[in-house]
Computed example of a mutant assay.
Amino acid sequence: MTQMASASELSKLKTIKTKSLYPLPLRFYGVQLLTLVLLAAVFSWLSRDEGFDRLLTGYWFDAASLHFPLKNNALLDLINHRLAKYLIIAVAACTLLYGAYRRNARLVTAALLMGLGALVVGALKAVSHHSCPWDLLEYGGDAVSYPLFGAVPEHSGPGRCFPGGHSSSGFIVMGLFFAFWRERPRLAWCMVAAGVVLGLVMGYGQVMRGAHFFSHNLWAGWWVWFSQVVAYGLISTWFAKK
Rank of each mutant, 00 (worst) to 15 (best):
218 L>G: 09
141 G>K: 04
112 L>M: 13
100 A>D: 01
90 A>G: 07
141 G>F: 03
19 K>V: 00
188 A>W: 04
156 S>D: 12
56 L>E: 07
76 L>M: 09
70 L>D: 12
62 D>F: 01
128 S>C: 05
8 S>T: 12
194 A>Y: 06
78 L>T: 15
74 A>C: 00
24 L>A: 13
37 V>H: 01
62 D>W: 02
38 L>H: 05
164 G>Y: 02
22 Y>S: 15
71 K>D: 11
120 V>P: 14
40 A>T: 13
95 T>L: 14
71 K>M: 08
77 D>Y: 09
176 L>Y: 14
191 M>K: 02
195 G>M: 06
53 D>F: 00
75 L>P: 01
186 R>M: 09
92 A>Y: 00
119 L>N: 07
40 A>Q: 05
111 A>M: 03
200 L>S: 02
126 A>K: 06
223 W>M: 06
75 L>G: 02
41 A>L: 12
237 T>G: 15
31 V>K: 09
86 Y>T: 01
75 L>Y: 12
98 Y>R: 05
34 L>H: 04
208 M>K: 02
88 I>S: 02
19 K>C: 01
209 R>M: 08
118 A>V: 12
42 V>A: 13
143 A>I: 06
156 S>I: 00
230 V>F: 14
152 V>R: 15
30 G>D: 08
179 A>Y: 04
44 S>G: 11
98 Y>W: 10
229 V>P: 06
215 S>H: 07
17 K>V: 04
191 M>Y: 11
174 M>F: 15
177 F>A: 01
242 K>E: 10
114 M>C: 14
235 I>C: 07
27 R>H: 08
233 G>T: 09
84 A>K: 00
80 N>F: 11
233 G>A: 10
190 C>Y: 09
221 G>H: 06
182 R>W: 05
73 N>K: 00
30 G>S: 04
94 C>R: 03
109 T>C: 14
95 T>K: 03
72 N>S: 13
84 A>Q: 04
198 L>Y: 05
13 L>T: 09
47 S>F: 04
175 G>W: 11
57 T>K: 00
226 F>R: 01
218 L>M: 11
5 A>Y: 10
227 S>E: 11
196 V>H: 02
5 A>R: 13
91 V>S: 06
194 A>K: 03
148 L>F: 14
17 K>E: 15
36 L>S: 13
69 P>F: 00
189 W>Q: 11
219 W>F: 15
236 S>W: 03
108 V>Q: 15
14 K>W: 01
79 I>F: 13
213 F>D: 11
187 L>K: 10
242 K>D: 08
156 S>M: 03
87 L>N: 02
141 G>A: 10
172 I>S: 08
158 P>K: 08
168 S>V: 07
203 G>T: 04
74 A>R: 15
170 G>D: 12
183 E>D: 15
106 R>I: 02
128 S>H: 09
242 K>H: 07
53 D>A: 00
63 A>K: 13
180 F>T: 10
183 E>Y: 03
130 H>D: 10
133 P>V: 02
39 L>P: 10
3 Q>L: 07
186 R>N: 11
214 F>A: 12
238 W>G: 11
